[in-house]
Design a protein around this nucleic acid. Structure first.
Lengths: 349, 349
DNA sequence: CATGATAGGTTTAGCGCTATACCTAGTTCG
DNA sequence: CGAACTAGGTATAGCGCTAAACCTATCATG
């Protein structure tokens, strides 16, 4: 068996608790000399505390769950661009000597089971939509720090970190309007009363109305967040609404599919139609022309998530249980003034 | 506090151990009636066993580490296409009631620390190169099941799952040769004596020689596995070796950059140059023309990884400590016969 | 001088679970 | 008819750690 606290205590000629205190850096009553001696032995013998024993004896497991949606028979659904967030999450936690447990959640019961079984100190909900979050967190009790990423749930049990989806849409659509576009479509997956896509839609609508452009429901398309979805939409749009000169989409991959669909119908981007994506994924710079898109700072989001968890664990109450992070439009090559008319207003001078 | 074994035992009027045996499904001496009764109560009270108490008392933690390279200050380096493997890994483990702990490894010592601290039953090394694996596993003792993905390390301590990199290269390059190409370049990151890229290189060379094409060292390029790397290489290749009619690359992203680099120099794919990628990432179908590439079955690889771990934990010795999975060429749009001649006549010398 | 206050520890009592040894009444068998 | 098995349990002793209460010299203070 591995070396334990007891071994160290015996070798140092002190009690167990003294070693425990030293190892855990408690500024308790231990003389500098004793501390030094113990630390030496700990290092020499390669002592590593047992996390399970710690979790059992103390309250804290120093473990945070990363809970993502999963089906029973299929694997986790992690969107590629959240990988960056996961990496940052892990690093931030590791630096605080916390650790990440990756767990797919297929059924409601699994979430409480995971929390209880491993005595998780905290959990991050990644990729669930709002109704799910409310349903899942309903049974959660105790003092676990729950943070939902990209949630607009108002369940006070779950803290939230999100980026400014409304503002992102505002920036994108304002840019299109400033370029002179008037017939601007919105393409994204069906949205519920709340949630990320809804926010972006509201941002879109708000900008239109602020600029005196009548909102046209027929310009709002329910498009799946996939390349294929965008492609099909591109063809459909060309046939059904050739008057549209710009499309604001809720995902880069959708935008890229859309561009291909438009191209298949003989329409070029941004010559005939301007397209703006969302997420600034790696993809955005691989296509030609490079995609104009809305970027969020994923590492920052992950760091804020960790901060929220730690504050909650430390008992620091935050006034708001949601944090909203800024977002910015990255102008690249897929948004330009409309072809025919300059649109009256500014344009790009 | 949550309900414990003791609570269940009290309510059922039996001893602790009887409940423990029932909960763990031991076919020990418990009457059917008692078993039923206990199971009822367990369900009613929503009892969830404490994983930490279990790990402490038993040998097994039912925890598997997913160890990935990390820098001190930057986040994990998870290549986007391995996300699919991670998802499958998690699901397979979850179905066996094992769980996944995600852990970045920046220093050698962290690996043993992680294993010891959490008493991991197993660990998957993802994204390390062979020398690293040998170095990292050097200090590992005990009966942990260590599986390295995509490793050609011969360290018997670490089991390995990999795909047939040599064969994948063979298929790709044979395809190019069959199309009539004679001047075929190899583009990939610098490789060590062992490892994935080395295997692909050997496959490339073997096919050339088998077809009477002299191996030309100047056709082997050290190119970083990035879009930018491929792009720069595309320009360089056009200027330095315009006679090359086909390139076999070790990554889709590199291939896509390469295609863009060639385009920038006025050369089209596959008209002027054929390009084959590797990995069949999502990207491959987003570009136009769609990328011809080599695909591996990631879910299968993950499942095999779990199988290796479980066999090792069950004490089942496998004859070989490496498993090699099949791979197949996906013919799409970037490989075609060379423009001028199919013949053996060297173009511009 | 009694009276604290401090520094520098130690002792005790678990956390929730499992392995192992042990017990007891009924059955089988030579 | 007593030994040897069973089936169906129970009792005990930890796993490695921590929280909390407790001890004991030593020093300063009014």
């Amino acid at each position: 068996m591995a070396v334990t606290l007891k071994d160290i205590a015996a070798e140092a000629g002190v009690s167990l608790m003294t070693v425990s205190n030293v190892v855990n850096g408690k500024q308790a009553r231990v003389s500098a000399a004793t501390r030094e001696r113990i630390l030496r032995i700990v290092k020499d013998r390669g002592y590593v505390p047992s996390a399970s024993a710690r979790s059992l004896a103390a309250k804290s497991s120093r473990l945070v769950g990363l809970l993502v949606p999963a089906e029973d028979r299929t694997s986790l659904t992690i969107s590629p661009h959240t990988v960056e967030a996961i990496g940052t999450l892990e690093r931030e936690l590791r630096q605080l000597d916390y650790h990440l447990m990756l767990r797919g959640i297929a059924h409601r019961a699994e979430i409480t089971e995971a929390l209880r079984s491993w005595q998780l100190d905290g959990a991050v909900l990644l990729g669930f939509n709002d109704p799910e979050i409310d349903r899942l967190t309903a049974g959660v009790v105790g003092d676990v720090a729950l943070v939902a990423m990209d949630s607009y749930s108002e369940n006070p049990l779950a803290l939230g970190v999100r980026s400014d989806d409304f503002g992102g849409a505002e920036q994108a659509v304002s840019h299109l309007v400033a370029l002179g576009h008037r017939r601007i479509a919105f393409a994204g997956p069906a949205f519920s009363a709340t949630g990320v896509v809804r926010q972006r839609f509201e941002g879109y609508r708000t900008v239109l109305e602020a600029n005196g452009i009548a909102f046209d429901q027929s310009l709002v398309a329910d498009v799946e967040t996939t390349h294929a979805g965008g492609l099909a939409y591109g063809r459909r749009l060309t046939r059904e609404r050739p008057d549209v000169t710009a499309v604001f989409t809720t995902a880069d991959i959708l935008a890229i599919g859309l561009i291909e669909g438009l191209a298949a119908e003989g329409r070029s981007v941004p010559g005939d139609v301007s397209v703006i994506g969302y997420d600034d994924s790696d993809l955005a710079v691989y296509v030609t022309p490079k995609l104009t898109t809305v970027a969020q700072d994923l590492p920052d989001k992950a760091a804020e998530t960790v901060r929220l968890i730690m504050d909650r664990l430390a008992g620091k109450a935050r006034p708001e249980h949601h944090t909203t992070l800024g977002v910015r439009l990255i102008e690249r090559g897929t948004a330009a003034p409309p072809a025919r008319q300059g649109g009256g207003a500014a344009g790009t001078a």
